[in-house]
Simulated scan of single mutants.
Amino acid sequence: MTVSVRLDTPDDPAAVLDALRDWQRDGDPVQLHPGDIGWYHRFGAAETAAALRTWSRGGTILAVGFLDGPGLVRLATDPAARRDEELTARIADDFADPDRGVLAAGEADVEAPADSLLRDLLPARGWTLGEAWTPLHRDLAEPVEDPGVTVETVGPDTAEAYAAIVRASFQGSTFSAERWRELAAGPAYADARSLLAVEDGAPVAAITVWTAGPGKPGLIEPLGVDPAHRGKGLGKAVTIAAAAALRDLGASGVDVVTPSDLPGAVPTYKAAGFTPGPERRDLHRPAG
């Protein structure tokens, strides 16, 4: 059977999330997680659907591409199909031809699992190594220690406090309480929690965690600390609280991927009990 591509979600959007949940495995290279789609849902259901691409064979989804911006595709594949030559060739051809509606012409980046055949095929077509990322993992088999900070679950009444910390934490962010309500209304948020760390009655750090179902690794996306309260260990504390929340939700572990050159990020996660894995590089297509 030939591989087909569709340029939006299937009629039942749950099919994409179900595939991504199924593909999350402890010990496998980190790849696109249902939580990544859930976080993007802050822009609304229509824009989230428009950012998705699926590759299927015989009606079964084998790969999902997520356009996280006009020039970046984040790719996840069924682990059993990650070295599938027909599938990989089709994906690479779709990336190369703008008329196929998957990736626009010009400079672009692809994030692919570390053991994907695509990582062999694209360099042979002139792609180079791009931005470096560090994946980190914490196992949740054992109870999580006390984070040493008061943590509240975010709801409509505290959405603006959460949004304010996110805006302050990421340059250029326009995140708002309305966008939190959008993501909380999305199908992936049924397996998620947004948390606020509170100190002396004031919110000081924010984090959201996403599960892929019981016995599957969860994801942190995003983590932010109020700039006025940095340097006090609050990033570590709220990350430990997030790990505890994921364990309560049935997650087997927790993953996070951070830019390798982001100051303080890797040390913060290591302090919260995470172990870094091998650095991963995006695949970059030069302009022209």
Rank of each mutant, 00 (worst) to 15 (best):
E221V: 02
T174E: 15
L62D: 12
D248E: 15
A206I: 08
P259G: 12
L283Y: 10
L262N: 15
P214N: 00
G277D: 09
P267Y: 03
S173D: 15
E107Y: 12
A192Y: 02
Q31M: 12
A184D: 15
G273W: 02
M1F: 14
D139E: 15
D94K: 05
A202W: 09
P147G: 00
E279N: 02
P222T: 14
D200E: 07
A228E: 12
V154S: 11
A163P: 12
D36H: 12
R285Y: 03
D8Y: 00
L246M: 11
L87P: 00
G59Q: 08
Y162A: 05
A132Y: 08
S116I: 08
D22A: 02
T9C: 01
A241T: 02
R138I: 12
Y40C: 10
R25H: 15
V144Q: 05
A192F: 04
G71T: 11
Y189R: 00
Y269L: 10
P263L: 11
V154A: 12
T258P: 03
A185W: 09
T134W: 05
R119D: 09
V144K: 02
P276T: 07
K270Y: 03
Q171L: 14
A80P: 03
Q171S: 14
R179I: 08
W210A: 01
R179E: 15
D12K: 07
L72A: 08
A265D: 11
A190W: 11
V225I: 12
I61D: 04
W39I: 08
L72S: 08
G130F: 00
A141C: 12
A81I: 10
D157C: 07
L20F: 00
I61Y: 09
G148Y: 06
A241V: 02
G59R: 05
D94G: 04
P278H: 06
R280E: 04
G172Q: 14
A202Q: 10
A202N: 06
A63F: 09
L118D: 08
D28K: 00
I240W: 00
D94F: 13
T134N: 06
